[in-house]
């Protein structure tokens, strides 16, 4: 008995401890859960209509899902896969970001030109902020003082003071801004522009544009290079940027703003997430309906995993 027990414990504990990548399938109303060790889909869960943005609470005990066509943010228990309740979200929530206080969700309401701030504990809307048309990208600084919404048709990043929930600055970027990310030290904000084909870098302190990153891939027409999702590596040294229908991602040096590598992935790559140890990157490929796994040491795609139709967002749970 004494000998057997530890073995059993290990086998029992292993499934619960495996890290997972959770992928929303926009046209299937499901989430595919990928085991990061085996790189296989281990379960598929039902969601509301047209799931897009996806994020975990800071303690990973709750999963938030933008069910765009259900006009709600769903809250799921990731252990059971059960929807616990819905949050009021405003119409057509597309993307959102959870404030570092683990309580406030900043939601971009694509059809309404509004950013909605929701208290996830009280389950109520605490503010709605008028932004430009088709708000999409949402970011919040690590110190929690600033939230940013990008609006696709207005071509702006709107800077929101999270104390007053009011816009304090608007900065123009190239056409169809899709995504925004703060650097780890909150010194810079990076904004991707899908149709402009660029990434604009601002200093947060004065919202001044300090760099514009452009891309060039041999054998790919420039119009097909459309920056959308992006992530910084944990050490902050690199940014990885999804380039849409060019079917490539770019690895960019975060200090020099130079592209170090282009990696071929699936078709119309949307969003990205790193494994907890940073060794692997998962990309959602909208048109090919799969997820590409990239090894971050060799910067090579190592596997393609079939998921549902139009995979959109991805979030990782350790």
């Amino acid at each position: 008995m004494r000998f057997l027990l530890p073995v059993l414990l290990v086998t029992l504990a292993a499934p619960a401890m495996a890290s997972e990548a959770w992928v929303t399938n926009e046209k299937d109303d499901t989430i595919s859960v990928i085991d990061i060790e085996t790189l296989e889909v281990v379960k598929t869960l039902k969601t509301g209509e047209r799931p897009r943005g996806i994020t975990f609470s800071r303690d990973f005990n709750r999963l938030y899902i933008c069910a765009s066509d259900s006009d709600t943010v769903q809250v799921m228990d990731p252990e059971t896969g059960k929807i616990l309740h819905d949050l009021p979200s405003g119409e057509d929530p597309e993307q959102f970001v959870l404030h570092p206080n683990n309580r406030l969700l900043y939601i971009a309401n694509e059809d309404d030109a509004i950013t909605t701030v929701v208290d996830t504990e009280e389950r109520k809307v605490i503010a709605q902020i008028q932004v430009g048309i088709e708000p999409e990208g949402m970011a919040v600084s690590h110190d929690g003082t600033i939230a940013v919404t990008t609006s696709e048709t207005t071509n702006m990043a709107h800077w929101i003071n999270t104390e007053t929930q009011e816009i304090f600055a608007n900065t123009l970027v190239d056409s169809r801004p899709r995504h925004a990310e703060f650097t780890a030290d909150d010194g810079q904000l990076w904004v991707t522009s899908e149709i402009g084909g660029t990434v604009t870098v601002f200093t947060v302190e004065d919202q001044e544009e300090i760099a514009k990153i452009t891309f060039e891939i041999k054998g790919v027409r420039p119009e097909r290079i459309q920056p959308v999702g992006m992530r910084f590596t944990a050490d902050g040294a690199q940014a990885v940027i999804a380039l849409g229908p060019s079917n490539h991602i770019a690895v960019v040096d975060a200090k020099t703003f130079e592209v170090k590598e282009y990696i071929l992935v699936g078709r119309r790559v949307w969003h990205l997430a790193f494994s907890p140890d940073g060794s692997k990157l998962f990309t959602t490929n909208g048109i090919s309906g799969d997820v590409t796994v990239v090894d971050m040491n060799s910067l090579k795609a190592i596997k393609t995993i079939k998921v549902g139709r139009y995979p959109w967002g991805v979030a990782v749970r350790p």
Binding site: D143, T145, F168
Partner: peptide, 18 residues
């Protein structure tokens, strides 16, 4: 302390942009 500074900055910016 670390939280106060940005807040001050923000309100100044608000005024400027306005």
């Amino acid at each position: 302390m670390s939280l106060r500074k940005p807040r001050v900055l923000l309100s100044i910016l608000c005024a400027m942009v306005g």
